[in-house]
Nucleic acid binder design. Structure first.
Lengths: 197, 197
DNA sequence: ACCTGAACACCGTTCAAGT
DNA sequence: ACCTGAACACCGTTCAAGT
């Protein structure tokens, strides 16, 4: 699909978009550390200097992908929240959406949340989770003794740890893996309570 | 300290150890992705081909550092557990030790737990945590409804998420950071219960 | 305005040759 | 046995020159 997909003449016209599209592909194949700007240029069919017309450097291109990533992540979180039937279900769905976003966008997720950066993160990225926690507290699924942001932070830490430890193979390596649904249920059983109990 | 610290003659005698020591330094300065074998060779005062007498490749050298890292981590966990006064305190101390190990060994921690690998992880790395959870269940600090390994997995996910989100600056970026002690207390308040309550 | 070609200093890695 | 020197294919990045 990438082989020889080059305009014979001179250049593209829409090189910037072609670079971004190629970068998404290449990133998925090679991961963040294996990602090479020269390889990208070769695939897109331009000289290795051409990308510098559109991006200041390698980091700037990756930064643009992170930016898209935060958008997509926010949309996925909101979509998950919208499908919920009750406050506890909403939290579980947000958690499940977190995990599956990371699964489907491994390299980009890594760049967004795992190492450096945070430069492009949206301040409202976790608004859906904080809202869900507030509701869950009111409905008695979560204790009222802590602020919603504190509890949301705890849940964020838990789901983030679960996600990274699972995707990097750590859970499997230590014999702690389980099917996704069960993993989520068992993990948040320690935090979410039954309001009728 | 690294400048010109070179035997004038030929070579070292103990190049392998010199490489490992230099690598620990360089890794702390440059991080895992910035770590260069050529730069290491220059610092240690040998040709860029010399390290290949002692390590198959760049990865093999980093792998040796990960190996040391798991040892040091295990020792730190056991030391923390030994100081505890009760089962809940023991869990909090293990969590605090996890965080401070990551803080003091940022790059190595990243290579051990954050990205790839897991190849060198000790199967008993989390034995201290599982033991502490078992005790905490018996003492009523943790619910008895789940197995100790399941609960330990949850706690591991939470502390791991807390650690990575904090060290990468994510908590600060989203206005969720707090002093270490309070952060740990607030986070695990949602999981640990008062057995007298 | 947008891209190429050639160049720079750097990588990781290999291998014949030196001591 | 252990290391050097020189080389290879690759990086990211710069810049004069082309259209």
């Amino acid at each position: 699909m990438a082989a020889g997909a080059t305009r014979r003449t001179y250049h593209h016209g829409a090189l910037r978009d072609a670079l971004l599209a190629g970068a998404r592909e290449l990133l998925a194949e090679r991961g963040a550390e294996g990602f090479s700007l020269n390889e990208l240029a070769r695939r897109v069919g331009v000289s290795s200097a051409a990308p510098y017309r559109h991006f200041a450097d390698r980091e700037a291109l990756l930064s643009a992908l992170r930016d898209e990533g935060y958008d997509a992540f926010g949309a996925a979180q909101r979509a998950a929240a919208a499908q919920a039937t009750d406050p506890a279900d909403r939290i579980i769905r947000l958690v499940a959406a977190y995990l599956s976003f990371a699964e489907e966008n491994n390299a980009i997720f890594g760049m967004m949340f795992r190492y450096w950066s945070w430069a492009e993160v949206r301040p409202d990225t976790f608004a859906p989770l904080v809202d869900a926690v507030t509701e869950a507290q009111e409905a008695g699924f979560l204790p009222a003794g802590q602020s919603a942001t504190t509890l949301a932070r705890t849940i964020w830490c838990t789901v983030h740890g679960l996600t990274t430890l699972r995707l990097t193979g750590g859970l499997t390596k230590l014999g702690l893996d389980a099917p996704t649904d069960q993993l989520i249920r068992d993990t948040f059983a320690a935090i979410l309570r039954d309001p009728t109990g």
